[in-house]
């Protein structure tokens, strides 16, 4: 059975860019993706990383209780490849993310926020 060793750091919308910037070293850590979860009217966002040198180790920066009308800051200034996940977050949850455009994953304007429970 798999045995992921996941360390979770709580963060906030105001501090997430700074928190990741302080901790992240691209030579040691591998950025995996950004994941959104609708927790019943509120959004949770996880910024997920793994460790190049430690087996089964994963790290998650977690922000909870986000309102869907909030602007999410972009971490692309720290992790240049994060834009894909940020653009997807916008399409899947219809939430504003800094420096993103709508429509890269969902072309049909009639489909809005498929991963939100209230849509």
């Amino acid at each position: 059975m798999i045995n992921p060793n996941v360390e979770i750091f709580q963060s906030t919308l105001e501090t997430i860019v700074e928190d990741i910037k302080k901790w992240y070293d691209y030579k040691k850590y591998h950025y995996v993706t950004i994941n959104g979860v609708d927790e019943g009217g509120k959004l949770r966002i996880d910024y997920i990383f793994s460790d190049y040198n430690e087996k089964n180790k994963m790290y998650v920066f977690r922000i909870t209780d986000i309102d869907f009308d909030t602007l999410i800051p972009s971490i692309a200034s720290v992790i240049p490849s994060s834009w894909m996940a940020e653009w997807e977050l916008r399409d899947m949850f219809d939430i504003e993310v800094e420096n993103t455009q709508k429509g890269i994953f969902i072309k049909d304007p009639n489909i809005v926020a498929p991963l939100r429970k209230d849509k």
Binding site: I104, F105, I111, P114, L115
Partner: peptide
């Protein structure tokens, strides 16, 4: 990249 989006996660 989104020409074959099928809503699988949903």
């Amino acid at each position: 990249v989104g020409y074959v989006h099928r809503g699988i996660e949903k």
